[in-house]
């Protein structure tokens, strides 16, 4: 249930830590896993060791940037075709560019398998784990 003003965790290494949803795309109802949304970066990730390694990545997005993102985890329970229900303890997303490729190169966190059926296999393959 991601809608206007929802705060999400950003779980990639694009440099954003917390983002705020400002729009849900192609949908008239709240977004769920696999939906594309427009976000504003509210908090930047402070890269300690990362910045020294890879300066470019840390500067990819800044606070106040408006970006597209894909929801990868939601608190609202999702029903699978076999009737089982999955839910996470937080709402999280991954930033993508306009063409739909992830901005970050790594992800840290579990994501939902529903991404595959929504044609986000690229994100799914970046994720360390999926449920």
């Amino acid at each position: 249930m991601i809608q206007l003003k929802t705060m999400l965790n950003c779980i990639d290494n694009s440099g954003a830590a917390v983002v705020e949803c400002v729009n849900v795309l192609k949908k008239k109802r709240p977004a769920t896993v696999g939906d594309r949304i427009v976000v504003v970066v509210q908090k930047q990730r402070s890269f300690g060791p990362d910045t020294t390694n890879n300066v470019g990545i840390a500067n990819k997005v800044r606070r106040g940037d408006i970006r597209h993102a894909v929801v990868v985890r939601v608190k609202k329970e999702m029903q699978r075709p076999d009737g089982s229900i999955v839910k996470f303890d937080d709402n999280a997303c991954v930033l993508v560019n306009k063409s739909g490729d992830p901005i970050g190169t790594r992800m840290n966190g579990v994501v939902a398998t529903e991404l595959r059926s929504r044609q986000w296999s690229k994100i799914l393959s970046l994720a360390p784990m999926h449920v």
């Binding site: 329970e77 089982s84 999955v86 839910k87 996470f88 303890d89 449920v131």
Partner: peptide, 10 residues
Amino acid sequence: LTKVGVEMAV
């Protein structure tokens, strides 16, 4: 999982 709580009803 990865410090995020996950619940699944099966």
